[in-house]
Nucleic acid binder design. Structure first.
Length: 892
RNA sequence: GCCGGGAUGGCGGAACUGGUAGACGCGCCGGACUCAAAAUCCGGUUCUGGCAACAGAGUGCGAGUUCGAUUCUCGCUCCCGGCACCA
């Protein structure tokens, strides 16, 4: 066994070892054992004192803006935050080492419902609760060692922040991009308040338990649909975004080409419907309208059954998922509509799956060619008229299934025989000719409702005057400050009750007037914060020239759950800001990384009433029994508990693992290393206590290897590649192969797990390497230096100390990324796989420059290969250079 | 329901452009060190058969394309995320 140089010193414990290479003015003493707390405290102090990560614009280097989605200050960091921010920090530090001028800021998405819920529960004003949480979470982020420019920190609940979105709102109002209309909300009749969807549980208010009603209220809307085409089309240019996110946004915008057409009804009323399938028009068997449709309201008075039906629809869910899965019900309205082409009478029905807020509140129904209409027609005995048949003329049982694909028209009068696309055009033209229809482009995307009947949000800066109507708050009166000493109690609207807030005078006429008491959707704040970081200290303008210096964000990192809403709203805002002349780029985020969830096992105990008491994984011990079954027991007491599978860490399942406990026990570097190593960033990350131990063990192993180098070796010697032994040359090749791989993994691929694995492999080889002599020692040191540099973005504290232990000075965070020496990669022989009919039969060593013929001869020469081709004739030889030879052999 | 994603050893995962399936880590087994334990170090570890050499099977299920498929195509199953007032 190799004697450890450490034992030569006859020391134990954490005795100080002074080495010539580290006794520098800025050096940390390198102790024998790795003490994360000591290392991290001193390195963080140095970053803080040196303001090492504050970004300046007047820097010759190319800027790189790296941003992680800012957190909602819920109280404590959770594992999802640790993962998100570590990914961002690794990218930022990697880019910094690649010579870029990196901006990485951090802030707080500080408005939102949880603060109001906390106020209700604990009687603390949301403002105080939020600011306390921010302080606590800031401390935790600093403890994790993220390279943030804290001088740009912002919180969206600060008037200095939200005043600018009030300002922008007024500009948009002036431009006509903001309007007011009635929209439906969840109304809790007991608490007299509007509920968020998440506060409605099984149709009842979460606090009062009262059945939630749908109520119409005037709401502010932003015309995002004006930008629908641009938002859709520029997705094609976002090559740095995951294809799945772009696909989700495309579907969300849902642009379609169709026809809007009119059915005239008895009594001269007109029902306008939109369809993407005018080719099926001859198959219409009824028209369905929303229960809230005005045509319905006129008829409920003398039809009690209809009235009852409409009433039963009043409290139906309106989420898309509710509509799609609920039982489809309807009632005939007793009205007939005239088919725009044939003039035939088709009945009008009221249906619970049609929404007034969607399109025109009416749809044409073609049971033969739409699944939902088909089911509805079968249920109510409505006719199913087939007007499209499969292109190949194949049989189709239309009673059994709707035929929803394109095909050829049948039973459609003059259009019979046309293909669906031909009929689309012909029918559209026929409708246009009669003035009963027009081609239209439609969007699934709806205008963005930005009003919230909430207290803890940014006030909407308008005043309602009895005489003048809606009057904008003059720019000089901004910001409209939200009073902060309010404690919501869950009933009513706090701002509507607060006379000192809403009682005001009309800026136009001076009469007594009422201030708007709705606040903005919190997506409003998060739609432009990324830009404000660039000009965070500017109290005279929303943004300034520095925005264009940094933007667009080079790398944005956040959860996949924001794939549509937040990311679409931010893209929309960016275009609004551009059109205001505040920026010049078209898109806010060039490259996007969406990280997966953090999941953990769940454990529970069944209650007598059938409910489940969830038990935190920290209290449970899992063992494998002899029969291979796993058994979960309480650590205290040994009681057996049930296993509930892997779930996203959450309060409701009590399966959260507190990052603070992890940091306290192993240090920030281990927390960072584990979260980066356990899974690729875009997949879900499974929590594992033993995995954390493994990550920590690796850092201790690395520390020990550097410590040994540090003690036995004098000043670094540059290896002379031409004079190395085979073993040293092989190790050096491994180093440079690793540099090439890790550079690609961190830069292009963003697979941090494989970058760490490659460094582990390299360290394993360094550990096994026991060649004596100064050249070997210098190769070893070159390898260790390489590992320290390559791991620095991931474990920045320990790598700083190891960097100095290896005889270097200054911040490793500012060091240059290692470069690949192409000469080190040269090989003379390669291992080649030999297959016979695709099955591996041998591995042979061949000269790297062997010709095809030589390779084939060497492959055929192998004894095991010969055994497998004996009696067969080789028909074909496939050679993949550097990889394999495949002999295709068959019997004669 | 619609849209998006996932499934590979006992476990997390690797295999990047169709080319040696299981890198790296965890767990487990064996050994060294120790009075002993912990820690640490060394070795083994997809399954089946075999002392071994080696052979057979194997990437959720069922087909297909190919000399060759975890990778491409078609058809399924199960699990997860989003669905407009949670952020």
């Amino acid at each position: 066994m190799r004697r450890s140089p450490v034992s030569d010193l006859g020391r134990d414990g954490s005795a100080l070892v002074f080495c010539p290479s580290s006794s520098t003015q800025d050096g940390f003493p390198m102790l024998e054992s790795y003490d994360p707390l000591e290392v991290e405290t001193s390195v963080q102090k140095r970053w803080e004192e040196g303001r090492s990560f504050n970004a300046r614009e007047d820097d010759g280097r190319e800027p790189f803006y790296c941003l992680s989605m800012f957190p909602y200050p819920s109280g404590k960091l959770h594992m999802g935050h640790v993962r998100n921010y570590t990914i961002g920090d690794v990218i930022a530090r990697f880019q910094r080492m690649q010579g870029r001028n990196v901006l990485q800021p951090m802030g707080w998405d500080a408005f939102g419902l949880p603060a109001e819920n906390a106020a209700i529960a604990n009687g603390v004003p949301p403002a105080r609760w939020t600011r306390q949480n921010i302080d606590q979470m800031r401390t935790q982020l600093k403890r994790l060692g993220f390279a943030y420019d804290w001088s740009r920190e912002l919180a969206t609940c600060d008037p200095e922040y939200y005043r600018w979105e009030q300002w922008l709102f007024l500009r948009l109002l002036e431009k006509g991009l903001v309007y007011r209309k009635l929209a439906t909300v969840n109304w809790d009749p007991v608490d007299q308040t509007v509920l968020a969807n998440e506060q409605v549980i099984d149709g009842r208010g979460w606090r009062s338990g009262a059945v939630v009603e749908r109520r119409e209220m005037p709401q502010w809307f932003l015309r995002i649909t004006d930008y629908a085409d641009e938002l859709l089309e520029s997705l094609d240019d976002l090559e740095g975004w995951p294809e799945q996110v772009r696909a989700m946004q495309r579907n969300w915008i849902g642009r379609s080409e169709g026809v809007e057409l009119d059915f005239t009804c008895d009594g001269a009323e007109t029902l306008t419907v939109y369809t993407t399938r005018p080719d099926t028009l001859m198959g219409v068997s009824y028209v369905a309208v929303a229960p809230e449709h005005p045509m319905v309201a006129n008829r409920v008075a003398n039809d009690p059954e209809l009235a009852a039906f409409v009433e039963s629809c009043r409290n139906r869910g309106v989420a898309e998922a509710d509509l799609a899965t609920m039982e489809k019900r309807g009632r005939p309205l007793g009205v007939e509509a005239r088919h725009p082409l044939t003039g035939a009478a088709v009945p009008v029905w009221v249906a619970n799956f049609v929404l007034m807020e969607y399109g025109t509140g009416a749809v044409m129904s073609v049971p033969a060619h739409d699944e939902r209409d088909h089911a509805f027609a079968l249920q109510y005995g409505l006719p199913i008229l087939q007007v499209i048949e499969p292109m190949d003329g194949g049989a189709w049982d239309i009673r059994e299934h709707a035929f929803t694909e394109h095909g050829r028209l049948v039973g459609s009068g003059e259009f019979t025989g046309m293909s669906s696309p031909e009929a689309f055009t012909a029918i559209a033209e026929a409708l246009e000719a009669r003035g009963l229809g027009r081609r239209r482009r439609n969007y699934r995307l709806r205008d963005w409702g930005i009003s919230r009947q909430r207290y803890w949000g940014c006030p909407i800066p308008v005043i309602h005057c009895a005489g003048c109507g809606v009057v904008p708050v003059p720019e000089s009166d901004l910001p409209v400050v939200l009073p902060e000493d309010v404690i919501p109690d869950g009933s009513g609207s706090p701002l509507a009750r607060l006379a000192s807030f809403h009682e005001t005078r009309c800026p136009k006429c001076g009469q007594r007037a009422r201030r708007e008491t709705d606040t903005f959707d919190t997506f409003f704040e998060s739609s432009w914060y990324y830009a404000r970081y660039c000009s965070a200290d500017n109290s005279d303008a929303m943004l300034d020239a520095r925005a264009d210096h940094w933007l667009p964000v080079n790398q944005y990192v956040g959860g996949i759950e924001h794939a549509v809403l937040h990311l679409l709203y931010a893209r929309f805002f960016h275009k609004l800001l551009r059109d205001e002349g505040l920026l010049s780029s078209d898109e806010p985020f060039t490259r996007l990384l969406t990280q997966g969830m953090v999941i953990a096992p769940t454990f529970y105990r069944e209650r007598p009433d059938g409910g489940r008491d969830w038990i935190n994984p920290a209290e449970v011990e899992v063992t494998r029994e002899a029969d291979g079954q796993t058994l979960a027991r309480l650590r205290a007491g040994g009681e057996a508990v049930s296993t509930g599978g892997m779930e996203k860490m959450s309060k409701s399942k009590n399966n959260g693992v507190d990052p603070q406990a992890l940091i306290d026990r192993y240090g920030a570097d281990t927390a960072r290393l584990f979260t980066m190593f356990a899974a690729p960033p875009d997949l879900s990350l499974e929590w594992s206590d033993s995995g954390v131990e493994g990550a920590h063990r690796f850092l201790k192993r690395l520390w020990r290897q550097v410590f040994e180098s540090h003690c036995i070796e004098s000043a670094p010697v540059r290896p002379r590649p031409d004079q190395l032994s085979d073993a040293s040359r092989a190790l050096r090749r491994k180093l440079h192969e690793t540099i090439a791989k890790v550079t690609d993994d961190l830069g292009r691929r963003q697979t941090f797990n494989t970058a760490i694995a490659a460094n582990m492999e390299l360290l394993n080889e360094v550990t096994r390497f026991s060649v004596p002599g100064t050249e070997a020692v210098s190769v070893r040191r070159e390898c260790l230096t390489g590992i320290v540099l390559m791991l620095n973005p991931i474990v920045p504290h320990v790598s700083q100390v190891l960097w100095e232990g290896l005889g270097h000075h200054g911040l490793v965070a500012n060091a240059a990324w290692p470069e690949v020496d192409p000469n080190a990669l040269v090989v003379d022989t390669v291992t080649l796989a030999v297959q016979v009919n695709g099955k591996l039969r041998a591995q042979i060593q061949v000269p790297a420059d062997a010709s095809r013929e030589q390779l084939e001869a060497l492959a055929r020469g192998d004894a095991n290969v010969q055994r497998h081709i004996e009696g067969l004739s080789v028909l074909k030889v496939i050679v993949v250079p550097g990889r394999l030879v495949n002999l295709v052999a068959r019997s004669q």
